[in-house]
Design a protein around this nucleic acid. Structure first.
Lengths: 117, 117
DNA sequence: GGTAGTGTGTAGTATATGGTACACGCATGA
DNA sequence: TCATGCGTGTACCATATACTACACACTACC
């Protein structure tokens, strides 16, 4: 699920199967936008919405806001702070991560979490 | 040097000591913006400029565009692609990196570069 | 067969973004 | 003392962004 709109629609329809209030209209209303706008966002005919609206969507859908923000190409404050503190280092890291397979990244995350750093 | 404007001014003044053509006016002219605008950007009174303008600045100042873009909070295409492909993984990695000391990140980069991954 | 709910198309809009235009005051040097 | 170059302040502006407003067509229920 590689883009914001598809992901949003998928999540909304999952919620909807359990709870009939997750129509485009209902969700848009609770989030505070027009249904036609939300519909276009889900189909990728609009750019992803503002961070405020994304946060509201995440809240209503009980989703991780960071994931939605990442999918929308809006980078979290944490990431910004890393970039600002060590830009060259970060650029280099990204260059390396680009060609790193999933299992390698997973191993890194595991090692870091287990305090090996 | 933690923000775009300060960094830009520092680099420009370094170049200037060697070459008198690196005044605000001269650089702005070559980049194709107004000097007052460039001045405000350097002092942080304007948001960082567009990616196009940042690229032109990087070119004229012989700087790494990725670093300037990172400082400006504009994330590179490579990073976007990573985020889109593996958003949760990336969010987790960032959470870990946040508290990682410099030497740990450096070690990671070194290991990756040396093919240990 | 009307009405209630569904998603969507089109047209328009307020505000933010990314600048321009031009003038001002300060140094420096001739 | 005045021309030249420096950075900067103020006012304005064109375009893009992030939406709104409203109507339309389809389905299902009764």
């Amino acid at each position: 699920m590689s883009n914001f709109g598809d992901y949003l629609r998928k999540v909304r329809e999952e919620r909807r199967s359990g709870d009939a209030t997750f129509s485009v209209r209902q969700l848009a209303s609770r989030v505070g936008v027009e249904p036609s706008y939300l519909s276009k966002v889900e189909r990728g005919q609009q750019q992803p919405p503002s961070e405020k609206t994304i946060a509201a969507l995440a809240n209503e859908l009980d989703e991780d806001p960071d994931v939605l923000l990442a999918l929308a190409g809006k980078v979290s404050g944490d990431l910004q702070s890393i970039i600002r503190r060590r830009p060259k280092l970060f650029a280099e890291l990204i260059r390396q991560l680009k060609d790193m397979p999933d299992h390698a990244v997973l191993r890194l995350v595991r090692e870091v979490r287990d305090g090996e750093w």
